[in-house]
Design a protein around this nucleic acid. Structure first.
Lengths: 341, 341
DNA sequence: CTGAAAGCGCTTACAG
DNA sequence: CTGAAAGCGCTTACAG
């Protein structure tokens, strides 16, 4: 089998540049890495690079440096709103800098295998979007000395972490419903989303504080259709006057299901969501929600990882376990209203 | 600066395996690549690999093979529904195979620079999601001999292409509205989405065939809020009885805007979308749309690229410019109805 | 089937 | 500041 495709002109290497500039290969390398090179050779090398259209081979660099310039970004499903937005935040922050993010979707059964494949590629750092339960195990497979930031999930003292303050958001939006006079709030959960730092935990805390017994949470998938079916069932229970859906898309499904069952929102039942999806304000009725700043969380995670890398270069080590809080914001719209008397 | 982080135990290399197994390095390499190795050495090597937890270094492999096992996937914005779903299709198809997809978001001003950075990393193949106008220029920067598949966009005879048959979808959904008795259909465009293979082209064709003059298309962004503003404006024009929105999210915004302006959907105005977004059937009224099979398009693109790679290995060359059609499906729901008399 | 040699494109001590 | 040497972890001819 041919080792190179036939029509391909082989790209210039550092050797070609050195030859054309009349210097040694290490001198070109020093030029590329901003080490001391005389002005005269600088210009000669610059010209040679320009003429040849030379671009350093990142693969060779990675081999000798024993690390790439890639920041691995692991997530369970990049098609979901929060994860996509978070990645966008990472992506935009990375732009133009020395590191480029690289998505690894942990989709299959053998997550450990996928994680190892990723680590084999020698990332300079790692960002884990810990939105889904299957991601939590990943942390035990990550070498301790790999600069790492975790977004969301329970606090893990071993790593830097970006907290989206979900418990606080869940608490506040539940309080909002209680203050409207509702005597109980039904929670509908999204996959994962459990643990002491979750929106569900905030809901439970608010219920406890108000002295009411939180009803059993109802589990839902990511699919709005399933939320609709749940809403339809809830429509038949006159005791339900307030619903806290785990995210906005779930809220949309629940509202539709309640309406299918003849209940009006918010007149008969208040429904709130979470995240502030772009369609949340378009929905009819517009959805009361907690706005999450996923972009900022992504950017913060990127900054954390590159910060750790820089700190390690200078022998500092304290930034490795920092905690950054990205608070949510209660956005009151039309899907929540006073409890019917 | 330390070349390796201190707490790190250096991973085993092929050299370590060879030493432990008592064979030469090339023999281990042959073992790894399924070349002839005696049974006795096979077992010794296998044991050594197992004991050391050895994993071949893909970076070194890439350097010597002059190609990686990565399929570069370029797109403009992976947070958009169609692109995210398409990527998911690619991702799932790739699973377990020898190639892994790798996203490159062409976000910045200097697309050419971004493309070159991607190509520097020596992908084995390339998939371009040609949904946005800025992506079209990319094709001129791609070396002809890089196995490439283009998803959507105008037909480019130089490359394999997966067509989502958007013009056909646009034609059929416009026909649907015309058959309901509407005398004119207003098109609201999404960014990009022009050219002879677009949903807009299908709309124009259907109008032309019906002998009606297509009104000027209205440009919209990806933001549902902007679509809502357009809908609000349209509400004041009694001549508008049918709207074809460039995608479902735009349709939702338009419907909301029409309602803000006092018009009922579909009684006063029919509104249809495109894509079959998961929320399209949840929306009230549920949205008539063209269902697109993005997963299948992604899988087809992956198959095309890996097929080209395999064919090149065997000297075939014909698959390089194949065209695959992934048709859409008209899904009639409640947002479209007979024209008011 | 197998090992010694050479090489992929780069970088980093080591002498000058 | 600069070049000759050695090496990163692999693979592929080349002899045996």
């Amino acid at each position: 089998m041919a080792r190179r495709r036939s029509t391909d002109t082989k790209p210039a290497s550092i050797k070609d540049v050195a030859a054309l500039a009349g210097v040694s290969v290490p001198t070109v390398s020093r030029y590329l890495n901003d080490r001391g090179v005389s002005d005269e050779k600088r210009t000669r090398i610059a010209r040679a690079i320009d003429m040849l259209g030379y671009r350093p081979n990142p693969i060779a660099q990675a081999l000798v440096n024993e690390r790439t310039s890639m920041i691995a970004v692991m997530c369970a499903d990049i098609t979901l709103f929060g994860q996509a937005q978070t990645y966008k935040g990472i992506e935009q922050r990375a732009h133009g800098g020395g590191y480029s993010p690289d998505v690894f979707v942990l989709g299959g059964r053998d997550v450990a295998h996928e994680v190892r494949s990723c680590l084999d590629r020698n990332p300079a750092g790692l960002i884990l979007m810990n939105f889904d339960p299957e991601c939590a195990d990943v942390l035990d497979l990550v070498p301790h000395d790999l600069p790492t930031a975790v977004i969301a999930g329970n606090r893990d003292e071993r790593f830097a972490q970006i907290s989206l303050a979900e418990d606080d958001g869940g608490y506040r939006i539940t309080r909002h419903l209680l203050e409207l006079g509702h005597r109980s709030v039904q929670y509908i959960g999204i996959p994962g989303g459990v643990g002491s730092y979750s929106r569900m935990a905030g809901w439970q805390r608010a219920c406890r504080e108000a002295g009411i017994v939180a009803p059993d949470p109802i589990a839902c998938t990511w699919r709005p259709q399933d939320a609709r079916a749940i809403g339809r069932r809830l429509a038949d229970d006159p005791a339900v006057t307030a619903v806290f859906a785990g995210n906005d898309e779930t809220a949309m499904g629940v509202i539709r299901g309640l309406r299918d069952g003849g209940r009006r929102v918010p007149d008969d039942v208040s429904v709130v969501g979470f995240d502030d999806h772009p369609l949340a304000s378009i929905w009819d009725p517009a959805i009361t929600t907690i706005r999450q700043d996923f972009h900022r969380a992504g950017a913060a995670a990127f900054d954390a990882v590159t910060g750790i890398i820089a700190d390690l270069g200078e022998g500092r080590v304290d930034s490795r376990t920092q905690l950054v809080e990205v608070p949510g914001e209660l956005v009151i719209r039309q899907s929540s209203g006073p409890a019917a008397r």
